[in-house]
Design a protein around this nucleic acid. Structure first.
Lengths: 113, 113
DNA sequence: CATATGACGTAGATTGTCTACACCATGAAT
DNA sequence: ATTCATGGTGTAGACAATCTACGTCATATG
């Protein structure tokens, strides 16, 4: 019923980066990836399923991650993703892009003299 | 002819913030705003006109900035924008939102133990 | 056997940025 | 005077990413 509050779009542009970074710790399934990001960010970043799965499919289609069906800790069938070689390179690219953006925005925000 | 390289979208989500912040220094017209952001960011952020003017109209429609036709330094007709009261409040909101995002992403990127 | 939960998934709306144009007025150059 | 470069504003349409709101299935648990 909430009319689609238009500003939960906090993640825009950073989601791929966050997923790739999370997979550095080893393979994980979607649910776990989202949970990890939410915990590590201390609840600041909450990834909706409608963002999560399209993102995973996107990254897989680009060859940055690869998937495999397995059984999760809790005994449920789950799709485990791992970082590929190109994925690792892409992570570096996105990390540096984020760094650039961060520095640039900070410069603009810097208080007046 | 370049097939729309899909990754110049560096700005996504930050443009409003950057514009509002720039207007703290006083009224300015679109061209000048874009130029200021580009200079202060040391060329990292380049705002295309197709992003700039829609953004300005958007901010004006929301009442965060107000406009007035004047004559520029170079004697050309230009639309000067100034920050409104609500605009100033919105700037604070967006600035804190950026801060939050920045901290959260940094936490996720933090190297493994 | 029923139910909660874990996990995956998609459709459609919304939004913001980009590319690629077009337009107009003024100042400068010839 | 006329041409041209420059400064400045603007829009249309493409595209991509996220969100909300659903739906589905299988397993574990009571």
């Amino acid at each position: 019923m909430t009319p689609a509050s238009p500003r939960n779009q906090l993640l825009y542009g950073t989601l791929d980066l966050l997923i790739l970074r999370t997979l550095v710790y080893g393979p994980a399934h979607g649910h776990a990836i989202a949970g990890h990001i939410q915990r590590v960010s201390e609840d600041a970043l909450r990834i909706e399923t409608g963002s999560l799965y399209p993102a995973l499919h996107r990254l897989e289609a680009r060859g940055w991650i690869a998937a495999q069906w397995k059984t999760s800790d809790k005994g449920k069938r789950a799709r485990y993703y791992r970082l590929t070689g190109t994925g690792r390179r892409q992570l570096a690219v996105e990390q540096s892009r984020w760094q650039q953006l961060s520095v640039a925005v900070t410069r603009v925000l810097r208080p007046a003299d």
